[in-house]
Design a protein around this nucleic acid. Structure first.
Lengths: 231, 231
DNA sequence: GCAAAAGTGTTGGTTGTACACCCATGG
DNA sequence: CCATGGGTGTACAACCAACACTTTTGC
């Protein structure tokens, strides 16, 4: 047997970066952290960091996101590895990017570990980012737009009970387009993805909308088998 | 400036593996190499190897595929990074997997570098593979099935001029299903992807079929914007 | 003429799209 | 009574799946 590195030691050529999308008040947001130390102290970046020898890459992504921002127990999906030899300034580092969708209201942001701050930013109004993080973010956003048309989303972005307009606004925010109300509803009705809660909105200054929730079984099936959400 | 590793030195925690799909006589194949040295000598594996400090991960994939099998100048797409801490036996190695589709007839396989052999295998009749290569291959095959329904394929898998039946058989081989001839043709006609070569098949013991080629512009557009190929 | 593949049509049901319309509620 | 969003209906075009049919060629 070789002399293995200690499980807590980091792999120096590999890192993680997370593109976390949030949704609130019809706006699509991105979660960024401000580096509190290291070569990028004071600058905004995607939450990320180093992988240790003892953990899987997927686990490292969850650990880092949690320790930097407080967000936990979410479904992180791998995006892509970015492997340009000059992407990191001082040495060779390949980064594995992840992405996820979360409902901002479900998490209090708690900056920690090497992050001095953690904030949501509108995707249309971002500060300058370190290294190639703008490219990673861009790639993630394109991926999200694509994903939205082939898999159901919203489970993690919306409150447990939501109105059809909220769901429509989510799609409109992601796809940067307007959708037809009636056709949007028909499409959803057809895939039987939603369950009517038999409960209405409260405290709104217009007719109260019916509340819906996702049918978890249908959701999982559609996610696995794929679907087509025309425009 | 730090003391950087020599550009030709390998990154020891990172590797590449390639899932190369080939098509011939209506059969979907996978390209494998037999390791000629190292801890897996004599065993079959996906073509892959180590990344150096001086090259991008994408470039490493191309270089390794070429030096192991002779295949060059193909479009390799990143599949995913596999990062389980125990996937590699003797130490911690994360691998970045790539995949590509090629026409077997366009390449003579030339085993080289650390490979003592390189062969096409039917995807339904594979030898045992090292490490987690069967999982990587599986993931790649699922990805291919998905891709086929949302992007045009065939450019690299078929001869420059081909018949509609050949194209249909390619789809049938990948999707493991039978398709309706007339409906298949109508679908293709609608997307204006094919150009009629005004030229017929020769030396066949049945009515000669018209030959077609891809319209490169439409092909690229469809690949970029996506499409839907219903069943 | 038969086998094998090429290639064309037909038909009915399903979707998608655009748009118009009525309903409920708070201010 | 009107602004705001909730919610429904219709009508035309496009599309899809299944299946039957005709054509061409070599043996």
């Amino acid at each position: 047997m070789e002399n293995l590195p200690h499980p807590d030691t980091i792999i120096d050529a590999l890192s993680i970066d997370c593109v976390i999308f949030g949704f609130k008040d019809g706006r699509l947001d991105i979660l960024l952290v401000k580096h509190g130390e290291g070569i990028s102290a004071g600058k905004w970046a995607l939450p990320g960091g180093w992988i240790t020898y003892g953990e899987s890459v997927d686990d490292a992504a969850k650990r880092l996101l949690n320790s930097l921002t407080g967000i936990r127990d979410i479904y992180l999906e791998q995006l892509k590895a970015f492997g340009d030899p000059n992407r990191y300034p001082s040495r060779r580092v390949v980064t594995v990017a992840y992405y996820a969708l979360v409902n901002e209201e479900n998490y209090a942001l708690i900056p920690g570990f090497t992050a001095s701050d953690a904030q949501w930013f509108s995707i249309h109004d971002l500060p300058p980012l370190i290294y190639d993080h703008d490219q990673i973010l861009d790639y993630g956003y394109r991926q999200l737009k694509h994903k939205v048309r082939h898999e159901p989303i919203g489970f993690n972005l919306l409150p447990a009970k939501f109105t059809l307009l909220q769901l429509q606004e989510l799609y409109e925010a992601i796809l940067e387009t307007k959708l037809d109300k009636s056709n949007f509803r028909r499409k959803l009705a057809k895939m039987k993805l939603l369950i009517d809660c038999k409960e209405k909105q409260k405290d709104v200054s217009h007719r109260a909308a019916e509340l819906y929730k996702f049918d978890k079984r249908v959701y999982v099936t559609l996610r696995k088998n794929g679907m087509v959400f025309g425009l």
